[in-house]
Design a binder for these strands. Structure first.
Length: 434
RNA sequence: GCGGUAUUGGUGAAGUGGUUAACACACCGGUUUGUGGCACCGGCACACGUGGGUUCGAUCCCCACAUACCGCCCCA
């Protein structure tokens, strides 16, 4: 093989892109009902944008970022996630200004880049759909964001979802809890797995969701972050739970759920699905939460924010194509040419059909008539128009309904002058099923 | 970054250290000089991921690299 795509990338061919378009369109629809609008930000940003938002301790920044210096010696990074760029744009464009209604609600979708070891549903160039809402700290917004995420999954015919929520409180909460957790785990250090011993200094919260069985036993008795919430954070979390209950959304509180990115505050949530595509293990497809200090961190006002991201590759693995009715689009008309010197007329006929808004195609490889009919079938065409010398002479062409095999005669000139009329007549003659 | 498995045509794949790399599907052509099926006939791998090595000889043995998949780390 002469050329290969770079490791961890994928070509999305038409059979696949159909699913992508469907999901993107559904997301735009569902988000639109909550009055979210699309924002498009650059795929690369200043390296600092991501360093500032994610925190140096996170592997996403320290090890997994695609960064480089451009010809002007600017330190650039390919975006590893979507939130930082949107927050940067929010601040830079002063979208927090009084002329914009708050909360300011946007969604985005596009490629993200992380230098990781590829696995199922995980690539180096991967795609996310995400939403962000700025300028409102109401727990009702948290609830609606979560409801919106679930609604999208439902629209995609995904059920058996598992929603987990937790609260990380504010900065003071996290600092106090961080300390309490380290104090609890340090005496047990020798019993922790090697990975977790390392995490004790780098990222102790991560020990909470260690996959090691013994770690999990030790962590079971660890202090809970929920006990460290300030009264405000506790009230906020209670309101979120009440809101979810009011909407009949099932959830479980998982006090060991943490985040890889440093900017989250208060409510965080994940929606998980278990599926054969993931060896029946649970896989998070949507994750999000509040990030109340981030806008200020980027030089904007002290405004809250909340959002979530959807891992599209993972999501796509779960979709049942047949359930979604995503059949390949068929042709409306296929033009069979029987004879030579028909090209000009063929072009004119196809032109008329296409301009009327129908899908039409013809043979370009000089296939025999039989071969052309086979192609019409392969292309899932509804009708076949046959053009030959006798048709040219008579001014009438046969139009065949491939499903029934019935054939009717249509005027060549009518096709070229008013194809919509021709189509209506066809519909009537073939049973009126448009 | 660590560990494991894999890599043969458009596809699914069989196979052996040695003159022509099974079989099936798909595709192309013919039997049928203008109508989609079936049947029959014929065609269809610069040769077996890339580069080295062992050997008289390697697709099959060894090494390295690349990529894919699985697990860990990390994460959506």
């Amino acid at each position: 093989m002469r050329y290969q795509k770079p490791k961890g990338t994928a070509d999305i061919t038409p059979a696949e892109s159909r699913k992508w378009q469907f999901v993107e369109q559904k997301a735009a629809e569902v988000f639109g009902t909550y009055d979210f609008q699309e924002i498009r930000t650059p795929i690369f940003e200043s390296y600092d944008v991501f360093e500032r938002s994610s925190g140096e301790s996170s592997d996403v920044v320290s090890k997994e970022m695609y960064d480089f210096f451009d010809k002007g010696e600017r330190h650039i990074a390919l975006r590893p996630e979507g939130t930082a760029g949107v927050v940067r744009a929010y601040v830079e464009n002063k979208l927090f200004g009084p002329e914009y209604v708050k909360p300011y609600k946007v969604y985005y979708h596009g490629p993200m880049f992380r230098y990781e070891r590829p696995q199922s549903g995980r690539q180096r160039q991967f795609h996310q759909i995400g939403v962000e809402a700025f300028g409102a700290s109401s727990p009702a917004l948290d609830v609606e964001i979560i409801a919106m995420a679930e609604e999208l999954l439902h629209q995609l015919q995904l059920h058996d979802l598992k929603l987990e929520i937790n609260s990380l409180g504010d900065a003071a909460t996290r600092q106090a809890y961080h300390e309490a957790l380290v104090n609890y785990l340090t005496p047990l250090q020798d019993q922790l797995s090697a990975d977790s011993q390392r995490r004790l200094t780098t990222n102790p919260l991560r020990i909470l969701d260690s996959k090691d069985a013994h770690d999990q036993e030790l962590v079971a008795d660890a202090p809970s972050i929920l006990d460290y919430l300030t009264p405000d954070s506790a009230a906020h979390f209670a309101a979120v739970k009440a809101g979810l209950a009011a909407l009949g959304i099932d959830y479980t509180v998982n006090q060991t759920m943490v985040r890889g990115l440093d900017y989250y505050t208060d409510t965080i949530f994940e929606i998980m699905v278990s599926a054969p595509a993931f060896n029946n293990t649970e896989m998070t497809v949507i994750a999000g939460g509040r990030y109340d200090g981030l806008v200020q961190e980027f030089g904007g006002p002290d405004e809250p924010g909340i959002g979530f991201g959807i891992g599209l590759e993972r999501l796509l693995l779960l979709l049942d194509e047949t359930k979604l009715g995503l059949a390949a689009p068929g042709l409306d008309f296929y033009l069979v040419k029987a004879g030579d010197n028909l090209d000009s007329t063929a072009l004119q006929i196809l032109n008329a059909i296409r301009h009327a808004g129908f899908r039409a195609d013809q043979d370009y490889l000089d296939r025999k008539v039989k071969g052309q009919f086979k192609n019409a079938t392969r292309l899932n065409s509804r009708f076949v128009i046959t053009l030959g010398d006798s048709e040219l002479a008579s001014g009438q062409v046969p139009v065949k309904d491939l499903a029934s095999g019935e054939q009717v005669s249509v005027s060549l000139s009518a096709i070229q002058t008013d194809f919509n009329k021709v189509y209506q007549d066809l519909m009537q003659q073939f049973g009126g099923k448009a």
